[in-house]
Nucleic acid binder design. Structure first.
Lengths: 219, 219, 219, 219
DNA sequence: GATGAATGAGAATTCATTCAT
DNA sequence: GATGAATGAATTCTCATTCAT
């Protein structure tokens, strides 16, 4: 993620990748309560090897989140440049929810205190800019109501993604139903005034830190 | 939580109530990661007293959930009998989301393996019946699209409630915005066909058991 | 140490005493780097039992220090009331050095950050008052130079005690030689003006916290 | 620390010097609990480079101690040849205490098992000879009591140095007060017979090995 | 019946030392 | 010859649950 002065040695690079890959699988699968030992075992390394690269468990989780957020941002940027913004918006929201559903880690960390980290804030901000642009173009095409802002999309993706994930094992794909419902609600036709201002992007990711984990890190 | 043959002694009954009350406050406030000792301390009893009534922590949490579900079911039943089903539905959804937001316990447990317990399944089933009835009457009044079923309401309340809770500390009340959006999506006007069948009530609460806690209880 | 509202149960009291006794032996013997597990093993209890009474290892060590400081204070108070203050001062210093030598724990903790705890500060302050009184009476009898204050005695006891402890295994009792030397230096005859003001009592025990453990607790 | 057959390559020599310099700074500053990695980082070398030259951390610390002891011995030798032995003795003691206070490494290692190493024993012995000579000349001038031997000076410097170091952060320079007191105690006037024979030089540095670190190396 | 004490099984994290490049 | 990566053994501390009083 960051620029390491000397490029990592070949074997270390391999291990680092195995660690990230394992952490991604383990945390996506079992959630953030999974232990670092679980990650280490899957990666075939000792726990100390992980702690060498990632001084705390939070650092490891943050690294995974960064990769995920980079993917999401990239997707949003591409969507913002699409010829058909309305279709691109629909596709982006659907894809983003699917991404949440695939990754418990993303889902559980969403809005948590990890989002206060500079790099993550930065990515989040870039993501917000891209979505804002996508929304503007869609609104210009009158394909979405005008009172919607980027943080609304963030909220809804998180909400549907989180709840949809739980449903995935017994009713796979059911989440698509709710994405459809949300999209219907976002259309300009029949829109009624909304009861509250949208949260700012900062409110969206700063909040939960205190709400969900009053005593500090959950770990 | 079946009835024990001999009715509880007066002091035991008092203790039981204090335990439930304390557990409700503590878990609603600090989430399910709060320790049993915290509950015991607030209730002014020893931990062993709690474990006598509730063999495991899960049993205690389940008892709380039952009480919450009873309240929600009662509210739904009343709504189902309202003279103005459309208004009653709106009010019920709003109230239910607010209830989720007020109660971290409900929020964190929603859809988890605790929902597989018989008594909770039963309550859930009663709740489903009431909501189904409320929906039918609203649909008869053409105030809501016809492809919506009770489990959809359950899903959406859970989704908005969970995500809204996290937002509550920095953007209090912002969740009302999303309730409004959902309600717009539920209106018959401009509805587009949905991509997937709704989950069954059973799917809605059975699923997450495995999805969220593959390794058994989180505790 | 503190006043517990309900007196401990008989077995718990026994365990608590075994824990304190074991901790005293282990820390006195092997120093503060000894692990809590070592203490637990010697006490015949699990580590969690120790952490139940003493939330952190520091708390356990502090409890031991309190007991030691109480003994030292009591001794000082008795000395201050002696009929022969000069003899009492000599005896007190000798006894205090011997106490240091017997207890690595006292020796290593002396002046550390544990001394910032209220109860320990309080005991230290009481000790200081008693020594001050003992000194005044001895000075009135012209048996000790007038420029000596209580913190000087504290410093010297600590210095000779610490260095003497190391010597104890190969030259047992050799420390008495240096107590004698110090006492000669404290006599009024031939005293030359001292190069520096004495530290205050606070300086004496506040200092080392930062000097010796810049990164926080040593543990 | 014997001479390796082939003289070191130029770069290796440079590295060795940087390691020693860094270790001296780091250990003097942060104490012996500082990690080998810290030393390596400051030296700009890998940890393995350190362990190539110094098979264990103790070996590295010993190397530092040797350099310090060499300095102290040199100072003592110079003092022993002074024209004014009494003044030279005072100056030497003062300087030695200051040296202890400046160097946590020296202070923490003093008397520990590292002093059992041949090269350190040798240096210690040379130091003892020089101090003995300085003492003899001072005693001949009747400027110091006759019952004082070199190991006494060692003990006292260690004692005042160690305790003084802790005081340095809040009462800088206060140690000079105690050097003065000690010097008063060393004067022939008013000397009373001492209670114990002096330790031998060997006792002075062999002892602590067992006293302070019964379980082997602290590291 | 009720209590608080005891515990065992982890969890994160650190560090001296060894090994592959 | 030098490097940084890897590791295993410790250490402090937590918590659901069981037991003795």
């Amino acid at each position: 993620m960051a620029l390491e002065s000397p490029p990592l040695r070949a074997d270390a690079q391999r291990n680092l990748e195995r660690i990230l890959e394992s952490a991604w699988v383990v945390f996506a699968d079992r959630g953030l309560d999974a232990s670092v030992s679980d990650v280490a075992e899957r990666a075939g390394v000792g726990t100390a090897t992980i702690f060498r690269r990632f001084p705390t468990k939070d650092d490891l989780v943050a690294a995974i989140l960064e990769r995920e957020l980079e993917r999401i941002r990239d997707h949003a940027v591409a969507a913002a440049e699409s010829d058909d913004p309305a279709a691109a918006l629909t596709e982006f929201i659907t894809w983003a929810v699917a991404t949440f559903i695939d990754d418990r880690c993303l889902c559980e960390a969403a809005g948590g205190e990890l989002f206060a980290r500079p790099r993550i804030e930065e990515l989040f901000s870039e993501l917000t800019v891209a979505v804002e642009q996508l929304l503007s173009r869609t609104q210009a095409a009158q394909a979405i109501r005008n009172d919607i802002v980027a943080s609304d999309i963030g909220f809804l993706v998180n909400a549907i993604g989180h709840a949809g994930m739980a449903l995935e094992s017994t009713a796979p794909g059911a989440w698509r139903r709710y994405v459809g419902l949300i999209l219907d609600g976002l259309r300009p036709e029949g829109a009624t005034p909304l009861a509250h201002d949208p949260p700012t992007a900062r409110q969206l990711h700063e909040s939960n830190a205190k709400a969900l984990r009053p005593g500090g890190s959950r770990f």
